[in-house]
Design a protein around this nucleic acid. Sequence first.
DNA 1: TAGATTGTTAATCGATTAACAATC
DNA 2: TAGATTGTTAATCGATTAACAATC
Lengths: 210, 210
Amino acid sequence: MCRGGGMKTHRNSVIRLVQYKNILKKFESMGFLKIFSNNLADATGASAAQVRKDFSIFSIEGNKKGGYLVKELILKIEDILGKDKAHKVIVVGAGHIGMALLNYKGFEKEKIKIMAAFDVDPSKYGEVLGIPIFSIDRLPEFVRRHNIKLGISAVPDISAQQTIDIMVSAGIKGILNFAPTQVKGKNETIINNVDVVLELEKVIYYVKTR
Amino acid sequence: MCRGGGMKTHRNSVIRLVQYKNILKKFESMGFLKIFSNNLADATGASAAQVRKDFSIFSIEGNKKGGYLVKELILKIEDILGKDKAHKVIVVGAGHIGMALLNYKGFEKEKIKIMAAFDVDPSKYGEVLGIPIFSIDRLPEFVRRHNIKLGISAVPDISAQQTIDIMVSAGIKGILNFAPTQVKGKNETIINNVDVVLELEKVIYYVKTR
DNA sequence: TAGATTGTTAATCGATTAACAATC
DNA sequence: TAGATTGTTAATCGATTAACAATC
């Protein structure tokens, strides 16, 4: 993850916060009302002290004896993660990865809405599950009109930097990038890289040295 | 990343090692013969001291004055990462993510070969780019016959744990898991989770707090 | 040689954990 | 109350960086 400006990040705490939230939703659907730091620790693999420390960092308070109320805790974490309102996202690149994203069911329950996809290839234009696929030329206008701040780049390696540039100048502030290229955003753009080959190479290393 | 047994990991060093290797291949293709810790630092965003420290951890030596020979360095890193020989992988789940993986061009140049895919849905059986798609019933026999140690799980959330179990009992030692579920492998299995929604939620958080 | 770069040690920084007082 | 849990402080652990002797 690259960020432009400086800021105290608590990178790992944020990741764990997402995990706590996911576990909590399961607990909620199972009818649990209260939860203790120990339960969250067991479910996520963190220590109980870590759970409480994370909460402390984000000023989440529980009850000295009775742990945390599940529903309340979910709301607080979602608030911190910016999940209080829906998030509009565009996808650039309607190849196999892009299509997998358009068809992916996991975004909706996290209030993430893919508004449109964009591609250079006219044969891709159309609609998938109600999501329109446009020419990339229409990206800047679309992004501005809908006031979209988030984008996912799923284009080939070679087009990655150019795509990032287009997104950033259109006003996109945060990008999830699937191209295995070192891309650079201007100043304050958040870029998070997902590199499947790298992730598999980590597995190979650990299997080898196990 | 979850591992069963204990072991000094240098988790971040391994990730950087992969990044150095990728940069080095670019340098190589540009005709460079030598490289200095400073060059690698600039290209990857690490510090020069970090680069040399990483090399020191893995006993990679350079020349006191003349930096490192690019070709030699690539070979040494590939050796550490276990890239000295090709790696056979299976993909379980031939939905959109599975299909994106089968069509992905990035594995080949890292000597990663997808040997087959498996699915429960007979309508998926067939072949994609020469990669056969079989019934999941044939997985154990196939894995044993080809002595495959690596797998990628791209099945729906609900089937994730069951799929991991099948892979592990068939002899798979390392798994890249795309399901957003907390899965557990037995004892010594390496499991690395890729959760696209989580990665996007991180971006949302950092954009929000920027 | 003078200058530049490696390899390593010690210092710093940050993140995790242990411990415990405060509290219900 | 006694027991249990939170919230926070101090201790520990690990990773990064600064600095510099060794070397070419």
